[in-house]
Lab assay of single mutants.
Amino acid sequence: DEETLERIAKELKEKGWTLIVNGKLITDAREALKWLLEEEERR
């Protein structure tokens, strides 16, 4: 759910983690959240 996604995005940002999505590096939590939401919609 959205709360979980926001928590994940926040944790990613705090830890300075990066996500690699389709070979693209995502360092911004907002971008990561946007991607996660798009993935949820596809299901």
Rank of each mutant, 00 (worst) to 15 (best):
T27L: 12
E6V: 10
G23W: 10
G23T: 05
L33W: 04
W35A: 06
E39D: 09
L37R: 06
D28H: 03
L37N: 03
I26D: 00
L37F: 12
N22V: 15
L33M: 03
K24T: 07
A29K: 02
G23Y: 07
E39A: 07
E3L: 13
G23R: 03
L19M: 07
N22C: 15
R30W: 15
E38F: 11
N22Y: 14
T18S: 10
D28A: 14
K13E: 12
A29L: 13
A29M: 14
E11C: 15
E11S: 10
E3I: 14
I20L: 07
L19N: 04
E14Q: 05
T27M: 08
T4Y: 10
E3V: 14
A32P: 00
R43T: 06
G23E: 06
L19T: 07
T27W: 11
L12N: 02
L37H: 03
R42W: 05
I8T: 01
R30M: 13
L33R: 00
L36Q: 00
E2K: 11
K13S: 11
L25E: 08
K24E: 06
E41P: 05
N22Q: 03
R7N: 05
A9P: 01
A9T: 05
A32M: 13
W35R: 13
K24Q: 08
L37I: 08
T18K: 04
E3M: 13
K24H: 10
K10E: 07
L36R: 00
L12D: 03
A32V: 12
D28F: 14
V21S: 05
K13C: 15
L36D: 00
W17T: 02
E6H: 11
V21T: 01
A32Q: 04
R43W: 13
R43N: 09
K10A: 07
E40Y: 15
L25W: 11
E40C: 15
E14T: 10
T18W: 13
E41S: 09
E11R: 09
K34Q: 11
K13Y: 10
D1A: 13
G16R: 09
A29V: 14
L12G: 02
I20H: 00
L12H: 03
E39L: 13
L12E: 01
R7S: 07
E38C: 15
I20V: 09
E14S: 03
K34A: 07
A29W: 14
T27N: 07
E14V: 02
E11F: 13
D28V: 12
K34P: 00
E39W: 15
W35P: 00
W35C: 14
W17N: 03
E39H: 09
L12W: 11
I8S: 02
R43D: 06
R42D: 06
E14R: 03
D28L: 14
E2T: 11
L12I: 10
L36N: 00
I8E: 02
E6M: 09
L33N: 00
K10N: 11
T18L: 15
L37Y: 05
L5P: 01
N22G: 07
E2D: 09
D28T: 06
